[in-house]
Nucleic acid binder design. Structure first.
Lengths: 202, 202, 202, 202
DNA sequence: GGCTAAACGAGACGGTACGTCTCGTCTTGGG
DNA sequence: CCCAAGACGAGACGTACCGTCTCGTTTAGCC
């Protein structure tokens, strides 16, 4: 019962790096496995051995590259509005940077192409942001800055999705002002109900 | 100065129909011009003569097919909450139907692939919904049901984008309850300010 | 009822020429369809569209190139021994020339690989030589220079095959002397049986 | 300092056996080193360590398998015609058996591919037959059954090569009758010259 | 009503990339 | 030091489509 040669970590990294480079250079549609293998100095089989589809390589390349590490757990200064504004500012900046928007488009294409990849990307890329938001919102809720009846998951996914949508639409990319407007809208939407703040009442 | 043969309407329709069929059958990634031409009983050149790219055919096929006609201009019963709930219910139903979600995915892929197509799709597919929402919201604003300072474009695009995002994420598809929660959040977020409902202010 | 574009004669010829060149340059085993297509300036599909296997291209390339045209119909000077010596000299010269022997090896490999190609090569390459020999032998038989009971097909195929075998064995290639010895052996083997067996003498 | 593990005879035999099996099953062209190693339950490296090329393995497999052992040294009953007929009958039977003809084709392909293998195969496979024939012919010559001037090597190689050629041509395989006709032709061709039967001499 | 010219179906063309197979080499760990 | 296992870089396989380019064959207007 022998074991054979070990998987080459150098090749793995070269493939992911080449994928990231080419994704930025030519976009998802024009990205090819042959191109990746060529630029990584690797046989095509080595790509197929471990990934089996363009979308899978792209997913792992994106997840192991920049962009996802920085899921910094949202500051908690005690002031939810400031914290959300800060978060949204950073999120928008990242989404609208050249690499960021390109990556969002590529990952979206991969998501569209492949359910399994969609799951993986969601789990490692989008969900952490929602989770992180959720925790901060819950903390604000406990602090009484947010209504105790508020539907926090809806709030979180609205914040994340609404901005992503603006990037994907490829029309005017979202600005810091858009982000602030969104935060304002949503925060007021879940503000605590003391006396007369019964907006939706009727 | 003769004019030559006219463009064949039959071929045009056959191509769009074939595109719609194949899009549903195999998805955007595996859709090919050759496949479209073959199924439409048409030469490839006839496709290239009038469209020139996969994404362009897909865009026109989608826009000329179902889904987009029904941009009914949002009911105005005078009760904004009810009207938005009704709109969101219909919107979610359409997005989560098998054809609907498939089409959203395909159009997203086309949008990602091609800026020009992105513009066209936005203009004919998404924008009308936002516009229609916007008009209803403006009407509600005039009726005092919505705060006069509310940022209506942000409200509209949040409603549209937030639900689209949930479809694109391909995780749990949005439900009528999700839609209601979103409407409630957003409506409260732009409710009129009576006196001290200044939750976010401080 | 349309017809589509016609087959390109230029491509056909370029492919056959490239095949001949590469066969001489690298041999049958190292000949590739990609190499042929590349050197011919042609898409691979154009090769596969019309031939479908390496051996088939090689067969047609060989048959349409040199070597086979020259099945000159064997001189008939009335002197069978001289005529056969002349034929065998030319046959050996052709088989042992660099291109000749290379081609024989390649065609043999193709023959081994593919029965259908074997048939075609036999019919167009070897058989004509045997037929041509057979006719000359029959003429000699009528002239009384060859025994009337002689088994001419055996004689012809022995002459052809015996020399080919020496080329294929890739040991000492056959010489003019070998050819003469073979002719002498075979001619004596079918000499007329009268009294003094002076058939060929005059 | 130590001599390490000894070469595994079991692996060697398994490789040769697998080669023979696969040669019969799929032919030379579709035979692969990986296939051999796989079927032999052996690492590829073990094949490369000891042979280094497909043709080399095939050569050794063929030589160490059936077909070659039986180079029985030709009977000598004192009657050369009978002995040659007996030999040719056996030779044809072996060449035209399913395994025999397949092996001839495979070995021919190997011969074509590789000069070194060609030498080895000639030396161990074809030459012994010619040598054995040569000895019997020399004996007949001494017995006066064959002309003293006869070119025995030509006779022997004609007998061997002419029949091999018929197998390689892959048209009608040679029969016992063909063999007899060949023997008759050749034997008459080197029959002793009684008086003035010097047909070919001048 | 014949002429001309563009659009049509068909399908071959030079290409690119696919995903698979095999090559010959290299690495690992067990015997 | 040999071996089975098996990953590796390389590159050919045969297929699918790309977008372009002929081919006849309709099918309009226009004379």
């Amino acid at each position: 019962m022998s074991s054979g040669r070990k998987r080459s970590e150098a090749s793995r990294l070269a493939i992911l790096e080449a994928t990231r480079f080419l994704l930025a250079a030519v976009g998802y549609e024009r990205l090819t496995i042959e191109g990746i293998a060529g630029r990584a100095g690797v046989g095509k089989q080595t790509v197929y051995r471990w990934w089996g589809s363009k979308s899978a390589v792209v997913a792992e390349a994106a997840l192991s590259g920049g962009l996802s590490q920085q899921v910094e757990p949202l500051p908690d200064t005690g002031h939810i509005a400031n914290d959300l504004r800060e978060w949204s500012r950073a999120w928008v900046a990242r989404l609208t940077s050249p690499e960021g928007s390109g990556l969002v488009l590529a990952l979206t294409a991969a998501t569209v192409d492949n359910q399994e990849v969609a799951d993986r990307l969601y789990r490692h890329f989008t969900e952490p942001h929602e989770t992180s938001l959720l925790q901060r919102l819950a903390s604000a809720q406990r602090a009484g800055q947010i209504d105790s009846d508020a539907d926090l998951p809806t709030v979180a996914s609205t914040l994340v999705g609404s901005l992503l949508y603006r990037v994907l639409a490829r029309q005017r990319p979202p600005t810091a002002d858009d982000a602030n407007a969104l935060v304002a809208l949503v925060l007021k939407g879940c503000a605590p109900q003391h006396e007369g703040a019964d907006a939706v009442r009727r």
